[in-house]
Amino acid sequence: MYNNVGAQPGVPRPPAISQPNPFGDTFYGAGSGLIRGGLGAYGEKILGSSSEYVQSNISRYFSDPQYYFQVNDQYVRNKLKVVLFPFLHRGHWTRITEPVGGRLSYKPPIYDINAPDLYIPFMAFGTYVVLAGFSLGLQGKFSPEALNWLFIKGLLGWFLQVSLLKLTLLSLGSGEAPLLDIVAYGGYCFTGLCVAILGRILFGYSYYFLMPWTCLCMGIFLVKTMKRVLFAEVRSYDSSRHHYLLLFIALAQFPLFTWLGITSVNWFI
């Protein structure tokens, strides 16, 4: 009575006939393509803008570390002259710019004597630790632990110098200078310290002449450099306030140099 052919064993079941949908595939393909294209463009826009924001802020505050090591022998000699004898520097103190990618960028140290570098500060810091340890050896107080203390003391002095320069710029409304620039400027103090300690090792009492001299030269160098940074970055100029803070930077070199120049196993003497 019932036509139940599909349920009988051995008898092939007729294929199911599906109704064609002339619009389904078209709408699905167009819709999925539209969704993928829209999401892709939106995601690319978000990622692109965020990437530009991150890159701009990184370059604004940190810069490229490789930039600070593009030096040669001529630059090192001329830079040491500027740091140790800043009053003999007859040229300008402004940095040289060049167009890169549609924006102005500073030339690397190899092409600009006024550009900051990290090669001289790192080499001077290492030399300072070695000379201080050698001075301790002449006093019969050398030990590996004492050398470690001198290393930490030098790092702390570098940190204090960088903090002084950064806080001064922030208080004057110019906190946009890259951090590595400030680290480089703060590290130049070890060049003068090396000269003073070497003088004490070779000529004894010459240290008491070389130490004030190097403090004075470092103060002049930092004042000239910070004035350039302030004039380039600051939004409002207050001559009296600027002059007092720049004078404070120069005077702060004397206690800092004196503390770092004392080669002992004690933190304060």
Rank of each mutant, 00 (worst) to 15 (best):
M1G: 11
N4P: 00
P15K: 05
Q19R: 14
Q19A: 07
P20G: 04
G24Y: 12
G24T: 07
D25G: 12
F27P: 04
G33S: 13
L34H: 07
I35D: 07
I35A: 15
R36K: 12
G37S: 14
L39Q: 05
G40H: 07
K45C: 12
I46G: 00
L47H: 07
S49L: 14
E52H: 13
I58Y: 13
R60W: 02
D64W: 06
D64R: 08
P65A: 02
Y68P: 05
F69D: 05
Q74A: 10
Q74W: 02
R77P: 01
L80I: 09
V83A: 06
H92G: 15
R95W: 04
I96M: 14
V100L: 12
G101P: 11
L104C: 03
Y106M: 13
L118Y: 04
I120E: 02
V130I: 15
L131F: 10
L131G: 07
G137A: 15
Q139Y: 03
A146Q: 08
N148W: 11
N148Q: 10
W149S: 12
F151R: 10
G157M: 00
W158L: 08
F159D: 00
V162I: 10
V162F: 09
S163V: 08
L164S: 05
K166L: 09
L167V: 04
L169H: 05
G173N: 02
E176R: 11
L179H: 09
L179W: 09
A184M: 03
Y185M: 10
Y185L: 13
G186Y: 04
G187C: 07
Y188A: 03
A196I: 00
F209G: 01
M211W: 05
M211P: 06
T214W: 01
G219A: 05
I220T: 01
L222N: 02
T225G: 09
R228N: 15
V229E: 13
F231N: 14
F231E: 13
V234G: 12
Y237G: 00
S239F: 06
S239G: 01
H243E: 13
L245D: 01
I249S: 02
A250F: 03
A250E: 01
L251F: 07
A252W: 06
F254S: 03
F254R: 04
P255S: 04
L256N: 02
F257M: 10
I262M: 14
T263A: 14
F268S: 08
I269L: 14
